[in-house]
Simulated scan of single mutants.
Amino acid sequence: MLLDTLAAFLAADGSPTRAADELCCHRNTVMHRLRRIESLTGHEVTDPRARLLWHLALLGTRALCPHRGPA
């Protein structure tokens, strides 16, 4: 769930509203999940370097687990 939220957030160019539309959930749900991601990774969603790292991590995850779908 967190990886899907992160992927949607990054694909939406950092827009929690567009990510929520993609995930068919409320914007606040996306924001809550993003705060959990920040807590787990120690990086903030507002940091462009963190977004790059997360994007690369998602690409690696998708390469290792192709059944999870595209990043």
Rank of each mutant, 00 (worst) to 15 (best):
residue 1 M to P: 15
residue 1 M to Q: 15
residue 1 M to K: 15
residue 2 L to C: 10
residue 2 L to H: 12
residue 2 L to M: 14
residue 3 L to P: 14
residue 4 D to A: 13
residue 6 L to Q: 04
residue 6 L to R: 00
residue 6 L to W: 05
residue 6 L to M: 06
residue 7 A to P: 08
residue 8 A to H: 01
residue 8 A to T: 05
residue 8 A to I: 07
residue 9 F to L: 04
residue 9 F to V: 03
residue 10 L to W: 02
residue 10 L to K: 05
residue 11 A to M: 08
residue 11 A to Y: 06
residue 11 A to N: 12
residue 12 A to D: 06
residue 13 D to M: 10
residue 13 D to K: 13
residue 13 D to E: 14
residue 13 D to R: 09
residue 14 G to F: 01
residue 14 G to Y: 04
residue 14 G to E: 01
residue 15 S to R: 05
residue 15 S to P: 04
residue 16 P to V: 02
residue 16 P to I: 02
residue 17 T to D: 09
residue 17 T to Y: 08
residue 17 T to W: 07
residue 18 R to H: 10
residue 19 A to M: 04
residue 20 A to E: 02
residue 20 A to N: 05
residue 20 A to H: 03
residue 20 A to K: 01
residue 21 D to K: 08
residue 21 D to C: 09
residue 21 D to N: 10
residue 22 E to N: 12
residue 22 E to T: 15
residue 22 E to C: 12
residue 23 L to R: 05
residue 24 C to T: 14
residue 24 C to M: 13
residue 24 C to W: 13
residue 25 C to A: 08
residue 25 C to Y: 02
residue 26 H to I: 01
residue 26 H to M: 07
residue 26 H to D: 06
residue 26 H to T: 00
residue 26 H to A: 06
residue 27 R to K: 08
residue 27 R to W: 00
residue 27 R to N: 01
residue 29 T to H: 07
residue 30 V to W: 00
residue 30 V to Y: 00
residue 31 M to G: 05
residue 31 M to K: 06
residue 31 M to E: 05
residue 32 H to T: 10
residue 33 R to G: 02
residue 33 R to Q: 08
residue 33 R to K: 11
residue 35 R to P: 00
residue 35 R to H: 06
residue 36 R to L: 07
residue 36 R to G: 07
residue 37 I to N: 00
residue 37 I to R: 01
residue 39 S to F: 09
residue 39 S to P: 07
residue 40 L to Q: 09
residue 40 L to M: 10
residue 41 T to R: 05
residue 42 G to I: 01
residue 43 H to A: 12
residue 43 H to Q: 12
residue 43 H to D: 11
residue 44 E to M: 09
residue 45 V to P: 04
residue 45 V to W: 05
residue 46 T to C: 06
residue 48 P to Q: 03
residue 48 P to N: 00
residue 48 P to S: 04
residue 48 P to R: 05
residue 49 R to E: 11
residue 49 R to H: 09
residue 50 A to V: 01
residue 50 A to E: 00
residue 51 R to P: 03
residue 52 L to E: 15
residue 52 L to S: 12
residue 53 L to P: 06
residue 53 L to Y: 11
residue 54 W to S: 02
residue 54 W to L: 00
residue 55 H to R: 15
residue 56 L to S: 12
residue 57 A to T: 09
residue 57 A to E: 08
residue 58 L to A: 04
residue 58 L to G: 06
residue 59 L to V: 14
residue 59 L to Y: 11
residue 60 G to Q: 14
residue 61 T to C: 12
residue 61 T to N: 12
residue 62 R to H: 15
residue 63 A to H: 14
residue 63 A to G: 14
residue 63 A to W: 11
residue 64 L to A: 13
residue 65 C to I: 15
residue 65 C to R: 15
residue 65 C to A: 13
residue 65 C to Y: 15
residue 66 P to V: 13
residue 66 P to Y: 11
residue 66 P to W: 09
residue 67 H to M: 14
residue 67 H to E: 15
residue 67 H to V: 12
residue 67 H to R: 13
residue 67 H to T: 13
residue 67 H to D: 15
residue 69 G to L: 10
residue 69 G to Q: 09
residue 71 A to E: 13
residue 71 A to R: 11
residue 71 A to K: 11
